[in-house]
């Protein structure tokens, strides 16, 4: 009896040692399922996209990529978990553009941007400026003109309070157009679209994926998109620059993948390859285009550089606006 217990113990210890060793080796990566941590609740646009991409990555990696939702505190709970995880490539993070501003918006985080390293870009989407179906505005020019004629009278919504990309886009737009309007806070695109349809709100900022369906059904009107080129799902909607604001730098919402700093570059390359091939698959492309997303194929270095420029841009704006969670 005793020897048997002993044997089992030895076998288990051996297995554990083997598993530990294999985790560190890049050659046979991945040898077990990979956790993709998403900082948002199931059902939202981030979660939906993460699941689409994860499913396609399975095929390429030969191991399942399992989506785990750890929502809360603007996705910093999820980011912290990955930042503190073993850099073995089995715990990776799905991020949105909000991540870039988090380090400025949440002053008391116990981890830093440099604790995470870029794996791959996934997709991007412009912000769309919308108005109600019966609104007198037919172009962005109309809106700017009306706001200039009557400063501080028009109302606008840009998602919930805080430092969401929609709120930052609104601040940027108002600044570049040199107009002022009254912000009204909403929990998200759903409730603000209800008020646009009900005619109580003058204009709003939303991600294309949040509003595209309503725009296509003519339930709300789109005035402009914040990207340099028009969105494929809204080909009739001009860009902000086309609408006459030459000094406007494009704003994109984006999704990407990060890993703990110190992860073997070969593992990162493997993951990047899996994302890139997922972004080439027909299934993913159809899903992306139906939601107004464009694939954002980048190698890890390009994505890191993109992260740095986004962090500088939005971190700077958050500080100059004096926004802070605490």
């Amino acid at each position: 009896m005793k020897t048997q217990t002993y044997r089992i113990l030895v076998a288990t210890a051996g297995l554990a040692a083997f598993a530990g060793a294999s985790g560190a080796l890049a050659d046979d990566y991945p040898s077990r399922p990979v956790s993709l941590i998403v900082g948002f609740a199931p059902g939202g646009p981030a979660d939906t996209l993460a699941r689409i991409v994860a499913k396609e990555m399975n095929a390429d990696l030969g191991q399942p990529v399992v989506v785990e939702n750890k929502p809360g505190a603007g996705s910093t709970i999820a980011a912290r978990e990955v930042a503190k995880a073993d850099p073995d490539g089995y715990t990776i993070l799905f991020v949105t553009s909000g991540h870039a501003g988090n380090f400025s918006y949440y002053p008391n985080l116990d981890f830093e941007a440099s604790d995470l390293t870029g794996v791959a870009g996934i997709a991007s989407t412009p912000i769309v400026i919308t108005t109600g179906p019966d609104s007198p505005f037919t172009s962005l020019g109309d809106l700017i003109e009306a706001a200039k004629a009557d400063p501080e009278t028009l109302t606008y919504a840009a998602g919930g309070g805080g430092a969401t990309l929609t709120a930052l886009s609104a601040a940027t737009f108002l600044d570049k157009a040199d107009i002022s309007a009254i912000p009204v806070s909403y929990g998200g695109s759903g409730p603000q679209n209800v008020d646009l349809m009900g005619g109580v709100l003058d204009f709003a900022f939303d991600t294309v994926s949040g509003s595209a369906a309503l725009i296509q059904n003519d339930q709300i009107k789109a005035l402009a998109v914040t990207s340099d080129k028009r969105s494929d799902v809204l080909p009739d909607v001009p860009t902000v620059t086309e609408s006459g604001l030459d000094n406007f730098d494009q704003i994109l919402g984006w999704f990407g993948m990060l890993a703990p700093a110190g992860t073997d570059p070969e593992i990162i390359a493997t993951l990047n390859g899996a994302v890139v091939s997922a972004l080439e698959s027909e299934a993913v492309l159809t899903q992306l285009s139906s939601q107004g997303l464009e694939p954002m194929k980048m190698d890890p270095e390009e994505f890191d550089a993109w992260l740095v420029s986004e962090t500088d841009r939005w971190g700077g704006l958050i500080k100059s606006l004096g926004l802070s969670a605490e």
């Binding site: 595209a212 369906a213 059904n217 339930q219």
Partner: peptide
């Protein structure tokens, strides 16, 4: 009918619809 979820649970269902390529709305 308008693609605006009534609560957290219907929000998840809505995303299942979108995943299947169906855009909710009056149409």
């Amino acid at each position: 009918a308008i693609g605006i979820p009534g609560d957290a649970v219907t929000a998840i269902m809505l995303s299942a619809l979108i995943l299947h390529g169906i855009t909710p709305g009056p149409t």
